[in-house]
Structures are given as structure tokens and as C-alpha cells.
Design a protein around this nucleic acid. Structure first.
Lengths: 118, 118
DNA sequence: CCACTATATTCGTTATTTCGAATATACTAA
DNA sequence: TTAGTATATTCGAAATAACGAATATAGTGG
């Protein structure tokens, strides 16, 4: 695969590599919202929200349009929602795996060993 | 959605937010490889590759198993490959959009204006 | 034991990200 | 014009990431 494509992918990931920005994308899942609404729901500083929105714009994850005084944001491509959905499933799959492993470990290992081991 | 899930997602994205690490994941797409093979194909410093592998392990993106002298890496969950595929399609979709927009702009705007604008 | 190979970790440096505070810009309404 | 609201940008500090050089660890075969 080309370097350009790898670069592009890593920039998308970088754009989403922050819990606040994920929250923003998820708030936009149902459609566009003005920046002010986002700030209210996120409960963070206005400047900070605006900075995160700038990152999302720079990485082409969202687009904005101005309406009078306000700026409406929306997700540029539904593919990104799909990505988040995949990761949600992935998260729960991993959770199950972890829990299963813990249960097995508990069954196989006498309690006394659990305490003193290593 | 829960904070924990958002945190988890952002950590996955952080894990993939680097072209070298994307290259690693793509090299592992067809199955496991020992670290040495990865280093050869990536053409980077051994220490650097090992550091990136440590990040991928920490974010639970890959798993490793030791066989004698070597450490074999593989992708923990195919879902991540799916994510990369979605982004590949997304990349080309965006490319098309951009090209189309450039073409339209060129048609609508006389050449003289393209030079002097702003 | 020693020497060798494969991989990981630590360290120091430089670059990037994140945040809040302050400031700037753009729009509306009077 | 001025005042007010919505949003963006700049600045400086603290935290985090990335890299190569050096070193450490674990495994294999004499």
C-alpha cells in the first residue's frame, strides 16, 4: 500500500485519538449540530471545544457551514460512524474474552496460589 | 455512551495513529510474523520497531507468542482489518470528491482568476 | 560456562498534543 | 455606530510521543 494512504489513515486515527473528539463525532451521529450545542453537551471550555473542532476539520473528519451567527458541524462521511460501530463490537468482544480468561484462571488456580504467586 | 468505551476507542485510535504502526498491522494482515521479519520489511531501527510493537501490544491491537528465540506477532481481532478497509474506501471516495471539486472549480473559474485570486 | 542471535527496555532529545486564559473575529440587533 | 453573542485563534505551560544510541534480557548451541 502507498505511503500516502498510510499517512492518510494515520491522520484519521490521530483525529479520533482523543475521547473528547470521539464524543463530538458521536454527538454528530444523528446529524448536524451548532458548535454551541456541542459545547453544552460536552461540558468543556469553549476554547478547548473549538480547538478539538479545528482538529476534526483539519483531518477532514467533519465539515462546517455557517448560518448567521452559528457554525453547524456534521460528519463528512458515514464511513466513520461505521468504524466507531465496529470498535464498539470489538470492545465488548474483548471484554468477554477478558472475563472468560479471568474465570478460567480462577477455576484452574487454587486461591492460596493466587495470593502468593510471584 | 460510557466514558470507558470512549476511552477505549480513543486508545485504539491512538495505537493506530502512526504510519509505521499501520504498516505493521498491514504486514500482519495475512497472518502472524516474527518481529525480525517485520523489522526487515519496515526498514527501520530495531529499537524503534520494538517500541512500536510495544505500543500495539499495550493498546491490545496485536498479540505475541514466543517460539524459541523469536516473537511472533499477530492481529488480535480481524475487526481492525475491517476498519482499515473502510478507511481505504473512504480515502478513495474523498479523492474522487476532491478531484471533482477541482474540476468544477476549474470549469467555473477563468484561468486568469485562478492565478490572481486573493 | 561462553558466544551468538532475537527482542525489549532505558535514556536523552526533540517534536507534538492538550489545556485554560486571553484575545480576536464575525455576525446580529439596536 | 455600539453592545452583545457565537466561534476561532494565539500563547505558554505541562504532558505525551517518537527517535536513535546504548544497554539489558532471554533463548540457542557449543
Amino acid at each position: 500500500m502507498s505511503d500516502a494512504l498510510r499517512q492518510f489513515k494515520s491522520e484519521i486515527f490521530q483525529g479520533l485519538a482523543n475521547p473528547t473528539r470521539i464524543a463530538i463525532v458521536e454527538l454528530l451521529r444523528e446529524g448536524e449540530l451548532p458548535a454551541g450545542k456541542l459545547i453544552d453537551k460536552l461540558g468543556i471550555e469553549q476554547a478547548n471545544a473549538s480547538q478539538h473542532l479545528a482538529v476534526l476539520r483539519a483531518k477532514q473528519i467533519v465539515v462546517s457551514r455557517k448560518v448567521g451567527n452559528q457554525v453547524y458541524y456534521s460528519i463528512r462521511d458515514r464511513a466513520l460512524i461505521e468504524v466507531l460501530d465496529i470498535l464498539r463490537r470489538y470492545f465488548y468482544a474483548q471484554l468477554n474474552t477478558t472475563v472468560t480468561m479471568l474465570k478460567e484462571a480462577a477455576r484452574e488456580t487454587p486461591k492460596s496460589r493466587l495470593v502468593t504467586r510471584r
